[in-house]
Nucleic acid binder design. Structure first.
Lengths: 195, 195
DNA sequence: GAAAAAACTTAAGGTATCTTAAGAAGCCAA
DNA sequence: TTGGCTTCTTAAGATACCTTAAGTTTTTTC
């Protein structure tokens, strides 16, 4: 059955970082919620609070915000087997200022924060897993600060392609541009110049 | 006695976020190490691993790294009652790529990771406190990504002055420039233009 | 499969920021 | 107090990136 296959995908993914025993697997499986989103549908909008961790089973997602000039700035991109969220809102329990949106028809596995936090007490490996994930999120954001200060736009684009090889194909170029912090026109120019 | 006064400063600071009972205070105090640094002295250099949390009692510090062109990029600044670290290295236990340096003669309280992690099991409030701090660190870095994409250099400088009012006075301007991601010459130009 | 919408490209002209270089000012050491 | 670092300023010329606008290609919708 499909659902079991998706759950296995999640469990395999978790097992890359920590080792879950039968009890842990049972417990984790028991709090799973499936959620489907259509293309362009929002998982989170400004003013809402993120109260789940979200694992992409099928499809692709992004998070972005709008600046004062209504310019979009993409903060995170994800495809199958990535986590997507407004971690700020999830961790602080405050309202989000971001959009989290499906780029394609997307299937998520959601783990509700309340249930997860109960699980942390029973199953330390699950707590460890999310500690590791949050740590990676911190590192990833810091990398971006470093990149944005050290590299020019083409170098950032080049890094992006190396880091997100599988994603580039599936994401419109104007979203890549808004991730890199350049205009779509300039990204188009850079691509031509270096091709 | 001076040392007790410094410890009280730390405890008051922790009490802003969580409530420590007598046992927690006792335990936390027992793992404190004091460390003095002279102006320009390094707390961490590339290749070392951060294995303490560091609270500034007196003085000021910064963390920075060097890019391929040996340009300095300041990631964090701190004065009295701020924490300073390479959190990436501390959390991942990997080698740092950064310098963490005293900008003035500085006195730190250090809490060793090994001792802290033992404490987390006995005193959940201490665990909570550092979870909150790490969360704030994540939020701060994400704010910087957002800023660097939405704002031009003068707006970033203006934000910097509002956010770090007490710090600006004590830090050379070229370090502020390296924090903002502009050249010292351009910062000087901006200051003149808007004065 | 045609029409509409969304995404991408091209190009001209403009602005923000950098590079280099030199001099001025501030600060520390002897 | 003088000299020597270190930091800050100024200015000219260069470059990276933006804005606008129009045309082209691709994708979506019915």
């Amino acid at each position: 059955m499909d659902i079991n296959h998706h759950i296995k995908t999640l469990l395999n993914h978790v097992n890359l970082d920590v080792t879950l025993d039968a009890f842990a697997v049972e417990k984790l499986s028991s709090i799973i919620i499936f959620k489907e989103l259509n293309k362009k549908e929002f998982l989170i909008e400004p003013g809402e609070t993120a109260n789940t961790m979200n694992f992409i089973v099928q499809g692709s997602m992004r998070s972005y915000y709008l600046d004062e000039n209504a310019q979009e700035h993409t903060l995170q991109l994800g495809i199958e087997e990535w986590w997507i969220n407004d971690l700020y809102s999830y961790l602080s329990r405050k309202k989000s200022r971001m959009y989290v949106q499906a780029l394609e028809k997307t299937l998520l596995i959601q783990l509700p924060r309340i249930e997860l936090e109960k699980l942390y007490l029973e199953v330390p490996e699950i707590s460890n897993f999310f500690r590791i994930k949050i740590q990676s999120a911190y590192v990833a954001v810091q990398e971006r600060v470093i990149d944005s200060m050290s590299d020019d736009a083409y170098e950032r684009y080049d890094n992006f392609r190396k880091t997100y090889r599988d994603i580039e194909q599936r994401v419109p170029q104007y979203i890549v541009a808004s991730y890199l912090g350049v205009t779509p026109e300039f990204l188009s120019y850079l691509r031509k110049k270096h091709s």
